[in-house]
């Protein structure tokens, strides 16, 4: 796969001196979905705005499809579609007109069948003659996606696509993103929701304080950073961890009915065999055993609180 978007040492300082991006470097492969995770004010939106041309970088360079975003902005921007975080739509404009406007603005000739295809894909065709103010929140967001797709972009930025959206609509959005990926569009999305990144991303980038802490394949990240927990269910509940097991750092499960052992999947020896032996030696009877992988959320919390990195 080839690199479609290349960001090199990108910095952005605002007039007041606030440094929103502190030298971000990132390569994005064609056809992948990259999720940028980060708390509020981490620089996610500034990064997207700078790549898309809404803010000007202080230093560094960005190329899209090999075109520099400053010196060759027309070619670079033609390849990009942007779905902003907030719903920015002219309330009285009809869906069809606003989507047609977006295509024209990007210099593409009128193509009604293309727009029809996009609107149908996003279940907006029936609403094409409605003013945007009459649409529901979820539909408005889809209109923004339709506008961003109107000029056939190869890279699509989705800034917090499911912020403030209910669970069902969020799932719909994930389906849309999966379909877009299937059609060959590269997607970069920012999100607060870890499960979103976990559900749809190929790679995950974690950004905090204007710095990209890491970018990794989602599966690898979970494997590398992931800790597993082994829960040993006991036939008879206990009130405290026996002294002979103290060195294993066990936690007592709910109601004293289980012992929880946390281990590192990367470690050469997980210590499970020894644990089970020692539990038996302590006179406890095992009823059941189960393991649990820590979620991306645990990894994320660990990263942004600087415990892990």
């Amino acid at each position: 796969m080839s690199v479609i978007l290349s960001i090199k040492d990108l910095r952005k300082s605002y007039a007041g001196g606030f440094e929103a991006l502190k030298g971000v470097s990132l390569d994005i492969e064609e056809g992948e979905i990259l999720a940028l995770l980060g708390p509020n004010g981490a620089g996610k939106t500034t990064l997207i705005s700078t790549v898309c041309g809404i803010t000007t970088p202080t230093s560094g360079s960005v190329t899209v499809g090999g075109h520099d975003i400053l010196t060759d902005f027309r070619a670079a921007r033609s390849l990009i579609g942007l779905v902003p975080q907030d719903i920015f739509l002219e309330p009285f404009e009809k869906v069809w007109n606003t989507v047609r406007f977006s295509r024209g603005l990007f210099g593409k000739p009128r193509d009604d069948s293309k727009l029809e295809e996009i609107l149908k894909k996003l279940s907006l065709w029936e609403k094409r003659l409605s003013p945007t103010k009459e649409l529901s929140g979820g539909m408005k967001r889809r209109v923004l996606i339709a506008k961003a797709l109107a000029h056939d972009p190869r890279v699509l930025f989705l800034d917090e696509p499911t912020a403030g959206v209910d669970v069902e609509l969020r799932k719909d959005m994930w389906d849309i993103v999966a379909e877009l990926k299937a059609s060959g569009v590269t997607i970069i999305l920012t999100t607060h929701y870890i499960e979103e990144a976990e559900a749809i991303a190929d790679r995950v980038g974690v950004i905090r304080g204007g710095e990209l802490l890491l970018v990794e394949e989602k599966d690898q990240l979970m494997q590398r950073m992931g800790r597993k927990q082994l829960e040993v269910q006991l036939t008879d509940p206990i009130t405290e961890v026996p002294a002979s097991l103290a060195h294993l750092n066990l936690e007592l499960g709910q109601g004293g009915g289980s012992l929880i052992y946390t281990y590192d999947t990367r470690a050469e020896r997980t210590g499970i065999t020894a644990l089970l032996n020692e539990v038996a030696q302590a006179g406890l009877v095992l009823a059941d055993v189960q393991t649990r992988q820590s979620s991306l959320e645990d990894i994320f919390v660990g990263l942004v609180s600087e415990d892990v990195v």
Binding site: C52, I54, R77, I80, P84, D86, L89, L105, G107
Partner: peptide
């Protein structure tokens, strides 16, 4: 002013138009 006020100016700024 209207696109500035309602935020739709993002589209003008991110389009390949000077």
């Amino acid at each position: 002013y209207f696109p500035k006020f309602i935020g739709t100016i993002y589209e003008l700024l991110s389009a390949p138009i000077n």
